[in-house]
Simulated scan of single mutants.
Amino acid sequence: MGKKSFFSSFGFAAEGIRYAMTTQRNMKVHGLAALIVIVAAAVLQVSTMRWLFLLLAITLVLTAEMFNTALEAVVDLVSSDIHPLAKIAKDTAAGAVLLTAAFAVVVGIVVFYRPLVELFGG
């Protein structure tokens, strides 16, 4: 594996991220939510540890959404017919995204609860 193929792999990865962000509605929603959370964390000056949890949650959700997109593409490539196993694969991948998004919501509540209470005088 030469330098060219090593550096090319970053380009391919960037293309995958671009594809997901520009074509997948849920990826756009998650990306917007991530941007809002990042801005809110900066404005509220959350601690380094809280930043780490927020960034972990954001990364997990975006990664799960990209795996879901990849799996759906492979299933569609392999099976043009509606098949019960294809449905199971797609539904399970979507469930993984839902679980990571639920985790992200819990992280957001834990991270932002105290700073928001302090901001609004509770």
Rank of each mutant, 00 (worst) to 15 (best):
M27A: 12
A86W: 04
E72I: 04
A94H: 15
F103A: 10
V111P: 02
V111I: 07
G16L: 08
G108R: 02
A34E: 00
F6S: 04
A86V: 01
Q24F: 09
V46E: 04
V61A: 06
E15T: 11
R18Q: 12
M27G: 01
V107N: 00
S9W: 01
A20Q: 05
T69A: 12
A34Q: 02
A89W: 03
A70L: 11
P84V: 01
V46H: 05
F112G: 06
A57T: 09
V110G: 04
E15D: 14
M66V: 06
T100Q: 10
R114Y: 10
L44Q: 05
A13V: 07
H30Y: 15
K4P: 02
M21H: 06
F12W: 09
L60H: 03
T69G: 05
A101Q: 13
F112W: 04
F53D: 08
M66I: 08
A41E: 02
P115G: 02
G16M: 08
S80C: 06
A20D: 10
V74K: 13
L55P: 01
A93E: 01
Y19R: 14
F53V: 03
G108L: 05
T59Y: 15
A102T: 13
K90N: 04
E15W: 04
H83K: 15
V75Y: 00
P115E: 04
V61Q: 02
F67E: 05
L119S: 11
Y19N: 14
S5R: 11
A41T: 04
R18H: 11
G11C: 00
A41S: 12
V43F: 13
G108A: 08
V110C: 07
L85K: 14
G108F: 02
A104E: 07
W51Q: 05
V46Y: 05
L35S: 12
S5C: 00
A70T: 05
Q45C: 07
V97I: 06
F112P: 03
D91G: 12
F120M: 07
I58S: 01
A70W: 07
I88R: 13
M66E: 07
A73D: 15
F7P: 00
G122L: 13
